[in-house]
Amino acid sequence: MTVQELIGRLGLELKNNGCVEAAINGCYASDMLSDVLANGKEGNIWITRQTHPNVVAVAAIKGLSGIIVTGGRQIEAETLEKAASECIPVMSTPLQTYDMVGMVYNLLLKNEER
C-alpha cells in the first residue's frame, strides 16, 4: 500500500508536498523520538502527536514512509517545509492516536491478506 492509498482510505489530510507514492510496510506509533530512532523500521508510517521539526530528522534518518499527526494538532510550518525537502509526507487526522492506530492496523492487515 502506498501513502497515497492510505490517505484516500482513511480520509487523512496531506499537509505538504511529500512523496506519497512511497510504499508502507508497517506502522510505528510513539511520541518519544528516541524510541522511534531505536524501533521504527524503514518504510513504516509513523503515528505521533509530536509536531516540531525534530520529527523530520527522525523520519529521514529512519527512512520512514510518512508521518501522521493525530488529534488535529497544528503542525509547525517549519516542520512541513523541512519534511517536504526530505520528501516526507506529513498528514493530519482529527482522530486520537488509539483510533488512528486501530484503523491503520486493520487496513495494513487486510492489505496483507489480499
Binding site: 511520541d31 518519544m32 528516541s34 531505536a38
Partner: peptide, 15 residues
C-alpha cells in the same frame, strides 16, 4: 514535551 528525555539516547548511541 518535545518527545525527548526517554532515557534512550546514550543506549541508542552505544547500540
Amino acid at each position: 514535551e518535545f518527545g525527548w528525555g526517554s532515557g534512550m539516547g546514550l543506549p541508542n548511541i552505544k547500540k
